[in-house]
Amino acid sequence: MSEPLDRYYISRDAGIALPKPKPQLGPLFGSIIKQLEQRKSPGWTTVGLHLLSSADPSEQKLIERNLIKLRAMVRKNFREPGHISSLQVRPPLQRKARIIFYAFPEALREESRKTMEGLAAEATADERVGYIVVFARCTDRWDVPYEAVLLVRRPLGDAADSASA
């Protein structure tokens, strides 16, 4: 995966000018990164790095397709207690961060923070996970890449670092 970067830096060291490689991002991942950069909330670079390392371009397409299905399920079933409302991306352990996409309708906006914290708490039970990133998306404002993001570092002992935007 690092071949384009290797070629760029080797060429640069040899005095050959090549355009700097850019990450291949699907529409959703690109819009999330752009919004993170615009908001610049605490921890935004860490969140962005975790997101970028969570899925390659083909995996990003699969995630986007599954999020569309999740949106439809949430819109249909949100009144039922315990309905499915999240999609978890569990990248290989060397990537470490677990990414969770949580979808909610406008009617449940007031509960969204509590739900995000609950999803993150469940994910911290896995001792192999170092960080959890939860993105909340409103099913009624699907054009917005995310409404809120929660970054949680798995507790080391009794202390945990977290930031939200």
Rank of each mutant, 00 (worst) to 15 (best):
D6M: 08
R7K: 11
Y9F: 15
I10M: 11
I10A: 08
I10D: 05
S11D: 14
S11T: 10
A14S: 08
G15W: 12
G15P: 09
A17D: 08
A17L: 04
A17K: 12
A17Q: 11
P19G: 01
P21E: 02
K22T: 14
Q24P: 02
L25D: 00
G26E: 00
P27V: 00
F29G: 00
G30H: 11
G30M: 00
I32P: 08
I33G: 00
I33N: 01
I33K: 03
L36R: 01
R39A: 12
S41W: 04
S41L: 08
S41G: 06
T45N: 09
T45M: 09
L49Q: 13
L49T: 07
L51Y: 01
L52F: 04
S53A: 01
S53W: 00
S54L: 03
D56A: 03
E59A: 15
K61P: 08
L62K: 14
L62V: 14
L62W: 09
N66G: 07
I68E: 11
K69I: 13
R71C: 13
A72G: 09
V74A: 04
V74G: 02
F78W: 15
H83C: 13
H83K: 13
I84M: 14
I84T: 13
S85A: 09
V89R: 01
V89G: 10
R90A: 07
P91Q: 13
K96S: 14
K96P: 03
K96F: 11
A97N: 11
I99K: 03
I99G: 01
Y102K: 02
F104Q: 01
P105G: 02
E106F: 07
A107C: 08
E111V: 04
S112A: 15
S112D: 04
S112V: 05
R113S: 10
L119S: 02
E122Y: 06
A123F: 05
A125K: 08
D126E: 09
D126K: 07
E127Y: 09
E127L: 12
V129M: 06
V129H: 04
V129P: 06
V133P: 03
V134M: 04
V134T: 04
A136W: 01
A136R: 09
R137M: 15
C138L: 07
D140H: 07
R141H: 13
V144I: 13
P145G: 07
